[in-house]
Amino acid sequence: MKPDTDKTLSHIDQHNNPSMVDVSDKPITSRTATAQTKVLLPAAVKAALHQAHASEGFEINSKKGPVFQTAIIAGVMAAKQTHELIPFCHPLALDNCKIVINVDNNQDLIINCECKTSGKTGVEMEALTGASVAALTIYDMCKALSHNILITETRLLAKSGGRADFSSDQTPGSEQASGQITIEFYGQLQSTFSQQPLQYKIPNNTTSIEAVYLDLCATHNCTAATATIKPILNDNFAQWNDLLNDRDVLGFLPPAAGG
């Protein structure tokens, strides 16, 4: 995608000071925005989800109560307060806010938040806030099981009704480079994962090493061991939260066992 060179930051005035956008002259239109966030679950939460599927249906009941129902309520409440959180976001009356939580093929959660209004300004910030706070609530409700929950890929899927409609394609963050990385496993990790280097597609360049590792653990049905395994990136020691780029070579080292 070509960069839009004539786009400027709308919340900064000609003196470089922060400012609200004056929408007094804008027409009132019907507006919709849908945002999505992904919550990558560790094994302990996946197990609780699996158990819930088997017995009560689609809900995890934590000590604090039903996880998904609480997250939906929290997301809607947050969407209604977006203008209080984001400095130059206009207050607007929401006509609707709908949050849907789904489980994807990797047993991770996909939260969609759709907001509607009739107004002069868009509702994408409300949709993004609703999805984000629903995700944070899931974290809060499940953190007693594990803190290894990763909130990731919060993005706008679509918005309409304004001056510029937007629709993302299926590649998240597609304005940034997506890419392919090579993953190498050492020692006993070769028997858990793969003897050969693995080619792995990263959706965008905000994908962390940990996100890839947790995904691999989920698809190979093994328990994540971020405390003992060391990640390496392009033949140097790396951190779990380091981000990946196209053509990176990622490696995982199990605990040393030489001598």
Binding site: Y186, G187, P254, G259
Partner: peptide
């Protein structure tokens, strides 16, 4: 040197 090597040098058998 032996203990540190066994514990931290990335070698596996």
């Amino acid at each position: 040197i032996l203990n540190q090597t066994k514990a931290t040098v990335p070698i596996w058998k």
